[in-house]
């Protein structure tokens, strides 16, 4: 019960402070992982992949997944309810004064600062995934060989994916699930 209350509180905070959509919840999830130990960074990376490849808003999917990993189905429901509660309250309040809210110069000025904040936080969270996916610091610590830091196969795959998703016009519009499935196959075939 206490676990569920904490889960609710952590996701309530996430829902209250994550501005800018689903990916904006990511830095909060890393923070929850660090402060509670409910799940590892590697697990979180897998949850992102599943959340991107299944129907539903990414932010909601990730909350459900983290909740499920932490405390089963009650956890999944609790985390999701926690995430959406601030949204519902805030929107119900704002809906009454919608036009005043959109034109308020302080709201506008605050969002001028919040948008780059959101980008900076997501980029930092992305770096955490890079650290476990493209590099192998454990192996480096064991062997002491600098070359062992780099996960060469993973770096090659990353370069190929980056080229395909950014460099090839026709492939840019493909849904992420295509790349996620292709990467899973590459991971199995080349024994990542």
């Amino acid at each position: 019960m206490i676990l569920l209350l904490r889960l609710f509180w952590e996701f309530f905070k996430t829902g209250l402070f994550a501005v800018g959509g689903g990916m904006a919840t990511l830095p909060f999830l890393y923070n929850i992982s660090d402060s509670t130990g409910w799940f590892t960074h590697a697990q979180l990376a897998d949850m992102i992949a599943v959340s991107e490849s299944t129907p539903g808003p990414i932010g909601v999917n990730m909350a459900t997944y983290v909740g499920f990993t932490t405390a089963g189905i009650p956890g999944a429901i609790t985390a999701t309810v926690g995430l959406v509660t601030p949204s519902v309250i805030i929107i119900l309040l704002i809906a009454r004064v919608l036009s005043a809210f959109r034109q308020n110069k302080y709201v506008d000025a605050a969002f001028y600062g919040l948008r780059p904040c959101s980008v900076g936080l997501i980029a930092a969270a992305g770096l955490m995934v890079v650290k476990i996916a493209l590099f192998d610091f454990d192996l480096f610590h064991q062997t002491g060989r600098l070359l062992d830091v780099f996960n060469v196969r993973a770096l090659i795959l990353a370069a190929v994916l980056l080229f395909l998703t950014r460099g090839v016009k026709k492939l840019k519009k493909l849904h992420p699930v295509v790349y996620i499935l292709a990467s899973a196959v590459v991971g199995i075939v080349f024994a990542f």
Binding site: A45, R115, V130, G187
Partner: peptide, 27 residues
């Protein structure tokens, strides 16, 4: 486990692309 190790690489790229897209509007 191998599949998810591959998928994690893809997640890096997806997040990078999301950041680039957001960057244009936010900065």
């Amino acid at each position: 486990q191998s599949a998810f190790a591959g998928i994690r690489v893809c997640v890096c790229v997806l997040i990078f692309n999301a950041v680039v897209k957001l960057w244009k509007a936010a900065v």
